[in-house]
Amino acid sequence: MSATQQYLLLLGLMLGTVGVVLCLYGLARSMGPTHGEPGKDVPASAGVLSRDPVWGRYHARYYGYALLFLAFDMEMAYMYPWAVVYKQEGLVALLDMGVFLAILFLGLLYGWSQGALRRQ
């Protein structure tokens, strides 16, 4: 199987799954209509009707970690191809990536020392 065929197969699987779910929804709909009643569509909050909208500026208190995460996630994109050729390249690959990772790790330590690694 060529790579294109494989991806087409995965696309087909994806569409198939969506299709199955839609069939299930159709089946559920055939059971009867939903009865609209007062208060029913208000998001459930433990016995208190709270109609206030909640969308807004959310305080993500892990933003210190999130910034470091970006750096590490980028780095991982390079590590996969490196991992595949690692054995072939031998010690050179280890040193190359070792230097890169050491710098990145120092960054982690620096962020840690500056208090980035805590809930703000």
Binding site: S45, A46, S50, D52, G56, R57
Partner: peptide
Amino acid sequence: DLPRSADGLAMDWIKVPFGPVF
């Protein structure tokens, strides 16, 4: 106009009920 957190960021605060049946 938004309230400030301890770290000085201004965010929307929401009032959320927990209970009476939680």
